[in-house]
């Protein structure tokens, strides 16, 4: 009879109304994940031999690494390893192709971040492994550290002059120094940049100076 189909449908929904709910209350109740779940990509830093198999096989260029060659043993040493998750397709190729099995996916899937910088994951060579490197690299690194600490000291002492020189504009240097006086972190970052890559430091400092001039134009340091 016409209409029985409708009633049967109502019966189905009515039956389910009094059944147990099947939804998970996610933040309180975490999902049960199977062993092979692909969440966050992890690297065992010590085991990596910097063979670059993973970077070659990755379809999207998610992985990149820096390494140095030890001339004595003719082996590569990993300096840093970065994973840019925003491009990752979770295809598992890198894990499969790693000859040392030092890459694996863990079960953490909460990878959302507020900006792109935070999605990228960078492994720096841990401090205790630095001694493992060839001597001249260790020495170069130490020298570098020393230069940085000197630069920081100089900046703290006479920021306007140094920044003015960097920017080739004394007014700007003063503005920037005033802005950075309260921000030690930024100051140190600029110091590191000035040691490692002077061009980048110029650019960043210029941008910061312009921003500072815009934010506090009334303090008498208006940039022409």
């Amino acid at each position: 009879m016409y209409g029985t189909g409708l009633l049967k449908g109502l019966g189905i929904t009515l039956k389910h109304t009094f059944e147990r709910e099947i939804t998970q209350q996610y933040p309180e109740q975490m999902p049960v994940l199977p062993a092979r779940f692909r969440g966050n990509l992890q690297l065992d830093f010590q085991d990596c031999i910097a063979c670059e198999m993973c970077t070659k096989v990755c379809p999207n260029g998610v992985l990149s690494l820096e390494s140095v060659r030890d001339d004595k043993t003719n082996k590569k040493k990993l300096m840093s390893y970065s994973i840019d998750f925003q491009y990752c397709m979770y295809c598992n190729f890198c894990v499969e192709n790693c000859p040392k099995h030092c890459l694996h996916f863990d079960h953490n899937f909460e990878l959302a971040a507020y900006d792109r910088e935070n999605i990228k994951k960078v492994y720096q060579r841990p401090q205790e492994l630095v001694t493992d490197l060839p001597e001249e690299i260790v020495a170069a690194e130490e020298k570098n550290q020393k230069r940085i600490s000197v630069m920081i000291g100089a900046l703290q002492k006479d920021a306007p002059k140094i920044l003015g020189k960097l920017l080739e504009d004394e007014e700007k240097g003063k503005v920037l120094a005033a802005a950075l006086a309260s921000d030690q972190d930024k100051l140190e970052k600029i110091a590191v940049m000035m040691v490692e890559d002077i061009e980048k430091a110029k650019k960043v400092a210029g941008a910061l100076a312009n921003k500072a001039a815009k934010d506090h134009p009334k303090e008498g340091n208006v940039v022409a």
């Binding site: 994940l33 199977p34 062993a35 092979r36 779940f37 692909r38 397709m89 979770y90 295809c91 598992n92 190729f93 499969e96 996916f105």
Partner: peptide, 24 residues
């Protein structure tokens, strides 16, 4: 699907010549 490859929707499980891993 998640059980076999760890991915729910876009499982890249197949490879040339077979599969990445055996069935669990």
């Amino acid at each position: 699907f998640e059980m076999t490859s760890g991915q729910r929707m876009i499982a890249s499980y197949m490879r040339f010549g077979g599969f990445a891993e055996d069935l669990p």
